[in-house]
Structures are given as structure tokens and as C-alpha cells.
Design a protein around this nucleic acid. Structure first.
Lengths: 200, 200
DNA sequence: GATAGTTTGTACTCGAAGTCTAAATCATTG
DNA sequence: CAATGATTTAGACTTCGAGTACAAACTATC
């Protein structure tokens, strides 16, 4: 993959919607050429195939996420506070880039099979979470986990699916609402508070 | 799609591994024919194409899940206890059918685009969770949610990704361990218990 | 043993991915 | 300003695999 000029990159984003709706395999490279305005021959000049076009979009988006998440994760505050910010950051970015995000989830399998993308997902999501859980346990604000990697996967899944679920069903488009929901579930848990007065 | 004889169905499962590893689009229907021992012509006699083969496997697996989950969800006990059982049931089934399960996640986008499969996912996962959350809130064992649908998506994501994450990275293959982890996070939350004694 | 459904091999069609080439454009620099 | 080299694009071509067609063998079952 040749270095992609910014102007070209911008055009490629126009294919996001299409790819999210149809998936890569139901999308002809000619279609990508049409909606982006980039001729097929040019696409092949930069990318080895349509899969690489998708990979480029994913990678671009994931760097964005990794950046924001890293900022949130290394801000001052307790582990708990920062975990809240990380969830906040991830969900906000998802809602700002719904198309790429949907495409990413839709072709999750493919993404996992592309080594570079798998690494980027790890970099953007798992590693920071993993670190944060350890730090939160150290400062006493988070429950210590004996399997932080598994926990990170669980959290990532919860956040991602929550964002996606809402994006698809879209009962609400209120981001703040969703963020609060996810934070409440993940941090506070689903069990009712112990001291809940017997109402009868 | 013609009614699929059981003997044929059994053979089809042999393609699970392949489909999980490569994804549907990187798998030639001839390959499916080879590993299953079912000739291409026969496959086309029963299915409209390779996508339908995949859909059959998904549907089969999802009915299984829906069954087990329904049992767990309608057992006696508080909402919290039953939620624990549901998580348990889902994760156990995932670990019993890793190939189909991986394929399902990998081709999640495609699955979502097949109406029948989308409905089956809903039936197997979302609807029971949704119901359970309401019942748990009613009996006081679970925190009331003002967006039960969003919550259901969050829980589904957490459970699924946890199972998947472990399945791929497989630091541990200890199912019970994972189940406990997910239950702990989702029910108890990540925040450290309030009464945590100041250790110093 | 005739009729209907199933199983399978083989040959074929067709569409889309990706390759090749060559011409046009643009940029850089001696 | 040439001249060198990279970029952009059109269009023709190759290749591969999905799906189709069909006919022959096989299996029921009535």
C-alpha cells in the first residue's frame, strides 16, 4: 500500500456508508470507484485490492480512537474516573463516525484476519483498558481483576455493542444517554444496591 | 432452502472451522464441498448459494442457544439469579461450538443483513435479556434500567466478546473461570466496593 | 416397473477482480 | 525550458469462481 495522499483519503470516506450497508463482498470495486469519484485504476495504483481500501479506512479510524482513548486514559484522576472517560471517548467517536464504525463491526472477522488491523484494535482498545484496570486496582478505585485481559475484552464488547446496538436500532440518538447507561452498567453493575429498602 | 436432512446437516458442521478461519468470502464453495464431503451439485440442490449454507449453520446454532437461554431465563429464582444462569448458558454453548460461534461473530455483518438470522439473534439473546431485566427490577434483585433494550445490547456484547476474546487469545480455556469473570463484572460492576477499608 | 424425488458428475455461462499498457498530466530540478 | 520521473486514468484483457443446466444413476414407494 502506497502512502495515501490526504485528498484521496478524504474521498475514500465517502465509501463508508456503502461498505457499512452492504459489507465488502457485496460491494463491487466499481461501486467504490463511483461513490468516491476515484477511478478503479487509481484505486489499484494505491491499494492491492478492495480489502486494502477497507483496511485503510479501519486503520485511519482506529488511530483516531487510539489517540482519544490514550488521552482519556492518561489524564489525571482515579482509575475509575479515567475509565469513565475512556468509555465516554470511545462512544463519542463511534457516534461521530457511524459508517466506518458499522463497517468495522460488520466485517469484524475480516478485520481480525488482517494482522495490521488486529494490532490496531489492540492498540486502540485492549491495551489501554488493560493498563487502566491495573492502575484502578492499585489506587483502590476499581475492583482488582485476576484476569485483566479477559476483563478488557468484556468491557470492549459491552461498549462496542452498546454503541452499535443503538446505532442500528436507534431508539435514541442521545449519545450522553448511552454513555451514562454503559458507565452505570459497567461500573456499578446490574445488581440492585444492597441497601435497597424493602418497598413493602 | 429445502428441508435439510439430518445426515446432511451433520456433514455441514465440518465446514465450521474453515468458515470461521477464512470467512465466507475467502472460502470457495468447492472447498466447502471438499471438507464436508458433500458435492457442490448437492449443495446447490439444497441451498441457493454459499451464503445460505452459512445461514443454515447460524440458524441451527442460534436455536440451540435460544432454547438453553429460555430455560435458564424462565427457571425459578430472582431476576439476578436467572441472569447469572443466562450468562452461564450462553458462554457454555459458545465454548461447546467454538467454530460456528467464531464464524458467527466474524460474519456478524452478514448475519445482520440476513433477516431470518437477525430475527434469530434477537430471539436467542436480546428478547430474553430484555424480559429478565424487567423482571429483576420488579423483584428488586436488579437495578431498574430506563433503557432495557440498550442494556440488553450492552450485556450481549459483554458476554459475547468475553467468550470470543478468550476463544481467540485463549490464555485460559477454563469456561467456569470466564463465566465467573463476566458475571462479576456485569452484576457487581467494576467499581471497588464502597466499604473497602483504607488499607493504609 | 412406473413415477417422483434425490444425488452427483460435467460442462457451461457470466460477472467481477485484478492485470497490463499506454497515453495524458503534473512536479521537480538541472 | 527541457527532461526525467511520478501520478492519474481509460480501456482492453485474463482469470477465477459462483451459480446454472442437464443428464445419468440411484432410491424409494405405491
Amino acid at each position: 500500500m502506497r502512502p495515501v495522499p490526504t485528498q484521496l483519503a478524504a474521498k475514500l470516506y465517502r465509501a463508508g456508508e456503502l461498505l457499512a450497508d452492504q459489507g465488502l463482498d457485496n460491494t463491487k470495486i466499481e461501486e467504490i470507484a463511483e461513490v468516491t469519484g476515484v477511478p478503479k485504476a487509481t484505486l489499484y495504483y494505491y491499494f492491492a485490492g478492495k480489502e486494502e481500501v477497507l483496511a485503510f479506512l479501519f486503520h485511519d479510524f482506529l488511530s483516531l480512537v487510539a489517540g482519544d482513548v490514550a488521552v482519556a486514559a492518561s489524564a489525571p484522576g482515579t482509575g475509575e474516573e479515567r475509565l469513565r472517560s475512556v468509555i465516554d471517548a470511545q462512544l463519542r467517536l463511534m457516534f461521530e463516525h457511524p459508517a466506518v464504525c458499522r463497517a468495522l463491526i460488520g466485517d469484524l472477522g475480516r478485520a481480525g484476519r488482517l494482522p495490521e488491523i488486529a494490532a490496531a484494535i489492540n492498540e486502540a482498545f485492549y491495551a489501554p483498558l488493560d493498563r487502566l484496570l491495573a492502575e484502578g486496582a492499585a489506587d483502590g478505585s476499581l475492583r482488582p481483576m485476576d484476569d485483566p485481559v479477559g476483563a478488557a475484552a468484556t468491557i470492549f464488547g459491552a461498549v462496542t455493542m452498546a454503541g452499535l446496538g443503538i446505532m442500528v436500532t436507534s431508539t435514541t440518538n442521545d449519545v450522553d444517554h448511552i454513555i451514562e447507561l454503559v458507565q452505570q452498567i459497567l461500573l456499578g453493575g446490574l445488581t440492585a444496591p444492597r441497601r435497597a429498602a424493602k418497598k413493602r
